[in-house]
Amino acid sequence: MVTPLLELRDVCKSFGATDVLTDISLRVHPGEVLCLLGDNGAGKSTLIKILSGVHQPTTGRIEANGEAVVFRSPRDASTHGIATVHQFGGTFPLMTIGRSFFVGAEPTKWRGPFRRFDRKFAGGIAVQEMQSLGITRVTDGDRLVGGLSGGERQALAIARAVYFGAKLLILDEPTAALGVKEAAHVLRIIMQARQKGIAVVLVTHHVTHAMTVGDHFAVLIRGALAADFRKGERSREEITDLMAGGEAMAELEAEIESYTKEGQL
């Protein structure tokens, strides 16, 4: 068995008296897409916050490449190659693509007091990296990020993470605010990142999206791991039911059906 890139062992998290996560054990392998599914409030956000160093587990441990690690801050996690991309890309709408790509790691030219931001280099690399993810519409690094579409912004954020050496990408609902075409594009980008050997944790409640790209699925219900299975082991309906909390969905459908029948009478 290959050592996983990142492994959670019996992780629990509680805020005061509220248990948010109980006994979560998960493995993330390089070049694999792990889909984290679950309804709102199931604990998905808390789990990715633990992965990205925002929260620390109350009990249990995290291992990176087989060694126990503690992420005290998002920075700790990022030094282990973990990068989180939020729903809106976490980019700066009024900055140019080149500038926002290199925020915090500005490339410079010239020396001493005249050390200056290398605009051409920054713009060129940003555009090149985005194009390598299939965003061919973007050709000018001096454009403002706010002029990009939602999918392009996601691509910019993912390209940035990949360029700065991310080994594990955590994508928090990347397709939630996107149209059908744009969402498909983001899924393609996820596959491209996967092909580069990057591990992806995809958080979503969009079962179709998850089934398109996922290799490995974990379903959270009320803070516990309700199911953990590989691609092809469950059907779409089973997953939807699981997410909605077991039988609830079928019952709901039956109930709705009875209403429509009543209406027809």
């Binding site: 920075r75 976490g90 980019t91 700066f92 915090g104 790691a105």
Partner: peptide, 11 residues
């Protein structure tokens, strides 16, 4: 532009 994003990039 975005304080939170700026912070996560290490600024």
């Amino acid at each position: 532009g975005d304080k939170e994003s700026a912070r996560t990039t290490g600024i």
